[in-house]
Simulated scan of single mutants.
Amino acid sequence: MTSAIDFLVITAVSLVFLAVLQGVTMAIGHRIGRYNVVDVAWGLGFVGVAWLALALGPGDPTRRWLLAVLVGIWGLRLSWHMHVKSAGKGEDPRYTDLLARSGGNNPSIVARKIFATQGAAQWFVSLPIQVSAVTGPTTGVWTAILVAGIAGWVLGFGFETIGDAQLRRFKADPANRGRIMDRGLWSWTRHPNYFGDSCVWWGLWLIAASSWPGVLTVASPVLMTWFLVYATGARLLEQSMSTRPGYPEYQRRTSYFLPRPPRAAQRSPSP
């Protein structure tokens, strides 16, 4: 009963925090004239929930600290990356298209379709962290699951960090203007950053699942993967990229999501 009450406190405080975060982010987006600022708040929301769980949870302190540190590293890096990526630029075409399909740039539509949706997703995806904060220590054979979770996080974090760095260097070279990035990790999967994100959250779930009832939160990494692959991630990006010269050829030789060796070593031709 005590653990259930502690969880209710943590999840309620997390909901309030995420609602305030998304409200402030929407106000900032309205002021600067673009709502892709919500992408900057995406990682920060998870960091806030993880550190609230660390502060409020009575569960195993080692695992609470581990999750807070891993989520903090991942979330802060991602938010900084999204800030640098979007600073000084216009609206993300994904949000322009979303609002156009939903009836326009009305504040109630913006709040519901973008900010409330992302806030709810942050709360649900972070459930493994919230539940883990009230559970006991990892013992016995469950330690292997915890270690597997750390390994998954390392794989995912490395994949998205290296992929983002490779893309940044590629775009910084004027000789690559108009070309499709198909090198490094981008020759193995068209979305190494999204694949890395998915691995990170499956790893975090495994860490939470190393103590009962964390395993019951498996729907959270499933939802995160669905977002990354189908909802707001790879699928929408593919739609906007498919008209670029060379991209259909890139699609034919490179895996969509799960990494695998490219079908051909040939790179996209110069425009």
Results as ranks from 00 to 15, higher is better:
Ala120Ser: 14
Leu146Ser: 07
Thr254Lys: 00
Cys199Tyr: 04
Ala219Trp: 15
Pro245Ser: 07
Ile5His: 01
Ile114Tyr: 02
Ile73Leu: 15
Leu127Ala: 11
Arg64Asn: 15
Leu44Gly: 11
Leu258Lys: 05
Trp142Lys: 13
Gln118Val: 07
Gln130Asp: 02
Pro271Gly: 10
Ser102Met: 07
Met224Leu: 15
Arg169Lys: 12
Ala120Phe: 14
Ser126Met: 12
Asp97Ala: 13
Trp51Arg: 11
Trp65Gln: 13
Val125Asn: 03
Phe257Cys: 03
Leu15His: 12
Gln118Arg: 00
Ala120Trp: 09
Asn36Gly: 03
Ala148Lys: 06
Leu206Arg: 03
Ala4Ser: 01
Leu206Met: 13
Ala172Glu: 10
Ala4Leu: 02
Gly45Asp: 10
Phe115Thr: 07
Gly23Ser: 12
Tyr247Ile: 04
Gly90Val: 00
Ala175Asn: 10
Thr135Ala: 07
Thr243Trp: 06
Ala27Cys: 07
Trp74Asn: 08
Thr225Leu: 14
Leu228His: 09
Trp80Asn: 04
Lys85His: 11
Leu146Gly: 12
Tyr250Gly: 02
Asp60Pro: 00
Leu127Cys: 02
Phe124Ala: 15
Asp92Cys: 01
Arg101Met: 08
Leu52Trp: 09
Ala27Asn: 13
Gln118Lys: 01
Arg190Met: 02
Phe227Asp: 01
Ile180Met: 08
Tyr247Glu: 03
Ala100Pro: 03
Phe115Trp: 12
Leu155Arg: 07
Trp226Tyr: 15
Arg190Gln: 08
Ala209Gly: 11
Gln130Trp: 01
Glu91Met: 02
Gly149Trp: 12
Ile32Phe: 11
Arg235Pro: 08
Trp65Leu: 15
Leu228Ala: 05
Arg263Cys: 10
Tyr194Asp: 03
Gly203Met: 10
Tyr250Cys: 06
Ile180Gly: 07
Ser132Ile: 04
Ile10Tyr: 00
Ala231Gln: 12
Gly45Phe: 10
Phe157Gln: 04
Val134Glu: 00
Gly184Pro: 02
Asp173Ile: 04
Met82Ile: 08
Arg169Ala: 12
Pro248Gly: 02
Ala116Ser: 13
Trp51His: 13
Leu99Glu: 05
Val20Asp: 08
Val38Lys: 00
Asn176Phe: 04
Arg267Asp: 14
Leu185Gln: 04
Ala219Tyr: 13
Pro259Phe: 02
Gly156Leu: 05
Pro259Cys: 13
Gly33Gln: 09
Leu155Ala: 14
Thr96Gly: 01
Gly196Ala: 09
Tyr35Pro: 04
